[in-house]
Design a protein around this nucleic acid. Structure first.
Length: 580
RNA sequence: GCCCGCAUAGCUCAGUGGUAGAGCGCGUUCUUGGUAAGAACGAGGUCAGCAGUUCAACUCUGCUUGUGGGCUCCA
């Protein structure tokens, strides 16, 4: 079978996957007779089917289910389409509560159909492949829990995930992609590269940054600060706790309390650990009378915040309880909004491209039903966001009603080396806090006006960003980010002095250098540097000492030859500073 | 928070109702070597924690904690 374009292969896969889900449901209902069926749609990468079963389905059961599915496929049963009247359908499904729920949502005048193969008939609009024999390649992947209709107050169902493809080759390719993603998992790489850890005794979602991870992080922080100063931000520092009155004014105690750590009592005053930086930046803004001439004011901080994330959502660096946001709040006049958004986007793309991200997906979220702030402000803000995106020629999707209650926002997802999207950047208007804190500036007319407030985090949080960055590079960071940039490998002990001397000369140019003086053979030292993904290895033996040269090897395996120190330094500078 | 797994040495993992194993790493000794692992010896574990069943629990049961895959939520 050949496919002329992407969309036709996608449609074909949908049919295969949907059909595979039916076959799986067929088998599951036979192995677990009291199963109630929920829904089983195709997804971007495969399919799933949700069941309510009496005994939990385990990973071991998957094999059995697969085996039975293959039998059904071998029988090559036709998928037969039938339309029913509403009363027939309701009667057929009287013992299937979830199906009844689905039927309720189907409009009265629409015909209701099923697809049947063998003796298994499932409520379904199709389409399907012609028969069960037309599933070229499939695999069941995992079992998971899932709420009915994705709502927490609904029953918890058992979900089986699987995937199916038009050929074994395509399936293999997909499985390899999953493997590749696992190979890049930042949690494993963090152990291998000794970047960070989290430990039982500490508490979940709290990160200990090891020296190498800290080096990576501070390199990012230094770069971030330098660029923010260049883009005319004022960087400040604020405390980690604040009095309850602050959080009452900000509204966090009303709307965000369940995410905040419990109250601390001190001298009869209540304090809270901060879940966000905004109120502190506002404290700075409000510390002085502001003129329209002062605006825009851009206040930035690498602000550490603590949030009581629900235990089940924690995940490595990507979801933690203590994190540092690359936060900033911009206070500006209405006529400055568009320019400010433009500048934020300039800075975002500049940072992201420097970190090696080239492709982005942009979401614009508009006013939800429940919201604060005048309509005119919402309209102006949304228009400004749109105009800026359009004038830059950026394509974006609109999430209608997806904004926060306090303002519209742009989220930017970055695409990593293996095509996955990660949400890092968020640019949000806030009509709530300026109102609550009574922020103002004195306008040209001598009257007080409320400033626009834009909240933005570009990397998101350093934790998440470093997690993403680690997976993007598979741990092989570019030179400027590598915790150790150069490993010097003396072949024998008599070369150590030369190696140390070389290390201090490179150190003088601010390269991060390690001299491997272990009692190992050169090959073992190379291997060790290789496993640590150190970009450059400098081999020092008799030949180098005699000729006053250095032998260079790159972690790619390439032998870069022998050169004098000045050439080496130029080469490293070029890689670190110009190719960055 | 909810569903289902998992928890054995610093790391990756075997293992049995009758008081614990490998590889890597670490230490010592020998070896001083040319681009991905030189060799020998040695140290290292209340088998996550607490309770229960049992003559006997690392192994079975329950709870707790942590963690993995998801759901929900989110930087």
């Amino acid at each position: 079978m050949e496919f002329v374009d992407e969309s036709s292969i996608e449609k074909h896969r949908e049919k295969i996957r949907h059909s595979t889900a039916h076959i799986m449901a067929d088998v599951v209902t036979k192995i677990y007779p009291k199963t109630k069926l929920a829904i089983g749609p195709p997804t971007k990468d495969g399919f799933y089917y949700d069941f309510q079963v009496e005994t939990p389905i385990t990973d071991e059961s998957l094999e059995k289910i697969e085996t039975e599915m293959i039998k059904v496929m071998k029988q090559d049963l036709k998928f037969e389409y039938t339309e029913y009247s509403r009363s027939e359908i309701l009667d057929m499904h009287k013992d299937e509560p979830f199906k009844l729920d689905v039927i309720k949502d189907i409009a009265e005048d629409v015909p209701i159909s099923t697809y049947k193969h063998g003796d298994f008939e499932d409520l379904c609009g199709g389409p399907h492949v012609e028969s069960t024999g037309m599933i070229p390649a499939f695999k069941l992947l995992s079992v998971a829990g899932a709420y009915w209709r994705g709502k927490e107050d609904q029953p918890m169902l058992q979900r089986i995930y699987g995937t199916a493809f038009e050929s074994n080759e395509a399936l293999d390719e997909h499985l390899k992609k999953i493997e590749e993603a696992n190979r890049r998992d930042h949690r494993n790489l963090a152990k291998q590269l000794d970047l960070f850890s989290y430990q039982d005794e500490l508490g979940p979602g709290l990160i200990i940054w090891h020296p190498k991870g800290s080096k990576l992080r501070s390199t990012i922080e230094d770069f971030w600060k330098k660029e923010h100063i260049r883009y005319n931000y004022d960087l400040i520092y604020t405390p980690h706790i604040g009095k309850s009155t602050l959080w009452e004014t900000s509204g966090h105690l009303d709307f965000y309390k369940e995410n905040m750590y419990p109250v601390m009592d001190l001298d009869g005053q209540e304090y809270y650990l901060k879940p966000m930086n905004c109120p502190f930046h506002i404290m700075y803004y409000r510390n002085d009378i502001r003129s329209y001439r002062d605006l825009p004011i851009r206040i930035g901080e690498l602000g550490s915040v603590y949030r009581n994330e629900r235990a089940g959502v924690l995940h490595g660096l990507l979801r933690v309880r203590g994190m540092t946001q690359d936060d900033a709040h911009i206070f500006c006049r209405p006529d400055q909004i568009e320019d400010e958004i433009n500048k934020v986007l300039d800075l975002t793309f500049h940072l992201m491209k420097t970190f090696g991200f080239e492709n982005f997906e942009i979401m614009l979220s508009t006013k939800p039903e429940k919201s604060v702030g005048e309509i005119a402000r919402w309209d102006l803000a949304i228009e400004s966001l749109k105009n800026t995106l359009i004038s830059r020629g950026l394509t974006y999707q609109i999430d209608e009603g997806g904004g926060a209650f306090y303002g519209p926002k742009i989220d930017i997802n970055i695409e990593d080396a293996i095509g996955r999207l990660w949400q890092c950047t968020t640019v949000q208007f806030d009509f709530n806090l300026p109102e609550r804190f009574g922020l103002n500036y004195i306008g040209e007319d001598g009257n007080a006006h409320q400033p626009y407030m834009i909240h933005r985090a570009l990397l998101g949080s350093l934790e998440r960003f470093i997690g993403v960055l680690t997976e993007h590079y598979g741990g092989a960071f570019p030179l400027w980010l590598s915790p150790i940039q150069v490993s010097i490998i003396p072949i024998a002990d008599r070369h150590i002095d030369y190696a140390n001397n070389l290390a201090s000369k490179l150190g003088a140019s601010e390269f991060r250098v390690d001299v491997n003086t272990k009692k190992e053979r050169m090959n073992a030292k190379i291997r060790s540097a290789q496993m640590s993904k150190i970009p450059y290895m400098l081999i020092i033996g008799d030949k180098e000492v005699e000729s006053n040269n250095i032998s260079i090897r790159h972690r790619s395996g390439e032998d870069l030859g022998v050169m004098p120190f000045d050439d080496l330094l130029n080469k490293l500078h070029l890689d670190r500073d110009l190719l960055k």
